[in-house]
Design a protein around this nucleic acid. Structure first.
Lengths: 245, 245
DNA sequence: CGTAGTGTTGAGATCGATCAAGCGCTGTGG
DNA sequence: CCACAGCGCTTGATCGATCTCAACACTACG
């Protein structure tokens, strides 16, 4: 039996006990198939669920204001959607599938149950959620202080780093199911300029793009250039409570 | 006896039981005076503590890279510092006092204890931490898609909103202990341009600045203009576990 | 075979940066 | 009491990275 990709992800950080795995399975007990373009949460709707994203990519879109739109977060397989929204009663952003996929909805109350039944798992999710915040801070720095070129590079290396956690993206090559417009929305640029930069990079031989795939030809150099450091490499588990069995 | 400003803040969302207040007091048992300019956490140092910020303002600064610097977060009295860093073993940003103040350090393990001893408090902090993420997402939208003018306005209205939680900023007037350079670092602009915008606003009569204080003369209009909605107004507590006494 | 979405290209416009200089405090030391 | 340094703020001139606009090519699909 192949393991849940959430378990794979979590076991990067601590190896889970049987009880913890059971709790993850409990979160994943209901699975729903979803299609590219489906809206999972709409702005203004009541939020009662979180989701484990089992397959596919999902994105968080901002409201659209005078034609200005943004993509605020990309969710990859094995990530938990909704931790960042726990405090909100109604959604202020849209969650949309970018590819076909599958999600496992579970109610917010399960988070409370987790404190009790699997406290170490709760701590781990808290820690991961804090890394999400760190990633947002890094993006904020990039938006405010880096040129478009460097922002695009940061996007690629950070994405590869996150994909690597669930063992995707060997050879520095990975699937990128986003249009250039979407990349622009994620980076605060225009589609036209993203296009020009991608061509420039291809010309310079730092990346290859073909058929919705990206290959980073000089990854080390690129990571160096934007001062990338893997957030997930150094997670601190020292303060976690002991796992119940 | 005047209450802890953390308690004041938290009681905006749920009224705390005696046990919960005791737990907060336990977090705040050790108080340290700090001065303007003090570095609380330095890049690369091991992180073992969180802090309740009792008095004063603190800021998170990014690393400086080729003269580019940014302020990633402003902490106000009554906020808990370090929730966003829980997953990191070593600091990747600097935490610095912007005014004199007082902080209450407590170890990360207390978060684990909190799951057990005061689970509803843990849920509340999780919820608040998620609102921090939402605020970061809104800032990201602003950085990517709003003009400098609107970013500055968003800064003012969001700040006022947060100050109001602990009853500061009556009359739409509040203390802003930041230089124009620091505001620029917070907004991804240059000091020169911040200066020009502030003068423009003053000329247009939308704000008044004097003596490190800001008054928003047309707050409703400003909030309207950037589509501001208070994150804290609508916190969802429905999924919280029951409080132990 | 028309339509819609995506990617490409070039010309021109602009917001905000950069550069440079000067002003007015405040604190310090002689 | 003065000289001076440093910092924060102000102002104007100029520059350039990125946007805007507009047109076209390609593919997929009903």
């Amino acid at each position: 039996m192949t393991e849940s990709c959430l378990v794979t992800r979590l076991e990067n950080f601590v190896s889970l006990t049987e009880g913890e795995k059971r709790f993850v399975a409990y979160l994943e007990r209901e699975e729903r198939q979803v299609s590219r373009g489906d809206t999972i949460m709409a702005i203004g709707s009541a939020q009662e669920n979180l989701y484990v994203l089992k397959y596919g990519w999902a994105i968080v879109r901002s409201r659209e204001e005078r034609g200005r739109r943004a993509i605020l977060r990309i969710y990859l397989p094995g990530e938990v959607i909704g931790l960042a929204e726990l405090g909100l009663g109604t959604a202020i952003h849209t969650l949309e599938m970018r590819t076909d996929g599958a999600i496992c909805p579970f109610p917010r109350e399960a988070i409370s149950e987790m404190y009790e039944a699997a406290p170490r798992l709760a701590a781990l999710m808290t820690a991961i959620s804090s890394l999400d915040q760190q990633e947002l801070r890094e993006r904020l720095f990039a938006f405010g202080r880096l040129r478009a070129e460097e922002r695009l590079i940061q996007f690629f290396v950070a994405l590869r780093d996150r994909l690597a956690i669930t063992r995707i993206g060997a050879n520095n090559r990975f699937h990128l199911p986003l249009t250039q417009s979407e990349i622009a929305d994620y980076l605060g640029l225009t589609p036209v300029y993203v296009n020009k930069l991608l061509q420039k990079f291809a010309r310079e031989g730092v990346i290859q793009t073909c058929d919705r795939h990206i290959r980073l030809l000089q990854r080390e150099m690129l990571e160096e250039r934007v001062g990338h450091q893997s957030l997930y490499a150094s997670i601190d588990t020292s303060w976690f409570p002991r796992a119940h069995s």
